[in-house]
Amino acid sequence: MGKVLTGGTMSLDGFIAGPGDSGFDLLFQWYGNGDVEVPGASPNVPPLRLSKASAGLLQEEWGDVGALVVGRHLYDLTNGWGGMHPMGVPVVVLTHRLPEDRPNFVFVDEGIEAAVAKAREIAGDKDVVVNGGQMARQALEAGLLDEIGVELVPVLLGSGTPLFADLGVTPVQFDGPVRIVEGTGVTHLRYRVRR
């Protein structure tokens, strides 16, 4: 059975989004500042152009992923990535408003435990990635996460949404970093959740 992971691209002051879902242009500059093209599976998302170090890490990690868990907010914000997540794997969407089924997406309204269980079932021996923000917080509080990844970018947003906003179980300790990769405009950090 694979691991359950989460993470996000984060500013130096700890935010994965600025006020009112702003700042993504600054947070994700590293997605287009390199010479290595990494195509995605979504027809609505252009290929990434990463530094060699970032491309190598993402291609390795993405190859180990069998399913994703995201919240309804991100699903709506991206318009369901045009029908396919860029990673090309099935997506479990945790929501209070069940829509009609769509290919490549499974909608769950029974909580984070049910969403992660469904994603594990879909992923088989591969990893499950839980999207950052509320989903990451809920999974951490439920004891479901094995590893955290942070893509740290050199920008200050001043305020916004932290990776683990309103965390109900503190303190939480991690082992590591167990891996550090320096890309262009981003430092990739990986930590294990301490049990």
Rank of each mutant, 00 (worst) to 15 (best):
S11T: 08
F24S: 00
G34F: 08
V38C: 03
D64C: 09
F24E: 01
G66H: 08
P43M: 02
G66P: 07
W30E: 10
A17H: 00
P47Y: 06
Q59T: 13
G66F: 08
G23P: 02
F24C: 00
L27N: 03
V65E: 07
K52Y: 07
L58Q: 11
G63D: 10
G32M: 13
G63R: 09
A53L: 07
F24I: 01
L68F: 08
D21W: 13
L27M: 04
N33M: 08
S11D: 07
N33K: 13
S54N: 13
S22Y: 01
V45N: 13
W30I: 09
E37C: 10
V36A: 04
G20H: 01
E61T: 10
V65N: 09
A53G: 04
Y31F: 15
G18L: 00
D21P: 06
E61Y: 07
L57P: 03
G18A: 02
L68I: 11
W30T: 07
L26F: 06
P19L: 04
A41T: 03
A17R: 00
V38H: 03
P39H: 04
L48V: 06
L58N: 11
Q29V: 12
L27I: 02
K52L: 11
Q59E: 14
A17V: 00
E37W: 10
Y31K: 12
D64N: 14
G34N: 08
G56A: 11
P46E: 06
E37I: 13
S42D: 12
S11K: 07
G32P: 06
N44G: 12
V65I: 15
D35E: 15
E37V: 15
E37G: 10
P39C: 04
W62Q: 12
K52G: 03
S22C: 03
G34Q: 08
S22L: 01
G18M: 01
L26V: 04
W62H: 10
Q29D: 15
G40V: 11
L27V: 03
N33I: 05
Y31W: 14
S54Y: 12
P47T: 05
G66T: 07
V45D: 12
A53D: 14
W62I: 11
E61C: 05
G23K: 01
L48T: 05
N33P: 06
L27E: 02
Y31Q: 14
I16Q: 02
V45E: 11
W30A: 08
G34S: 09
G66S: 06
Y31T: 14
F15H: 13
R49Q: 14
P39W: 05
G63A: 11
S22I: 01
P43G: 03
A67R: 07
G32N: 14
G32E: 13
G63L: 10
S42W: 12
W62G: 07
P43Q: 02
A55N: 06
L50S: 05
E37F: 12
S42P: 09
A55T: 08
L48A: 13
L26E: 15
Q59S: 13
S22V: 01
A55S: 10
E61H: 10
F28M: 15
S51E: 05
K52D: 11
P46D: 06
Y31D: 11
L27G: 02
G32H: 14
G20T: 00
R49W: 15
D35Q: 13
L26R: 15
D35H: 12
V38R: 04
A17Q: 01
A67I: 09
L58R: 12
P47L: 05
E61F: 10
G32Q: 14
L27Q: 03
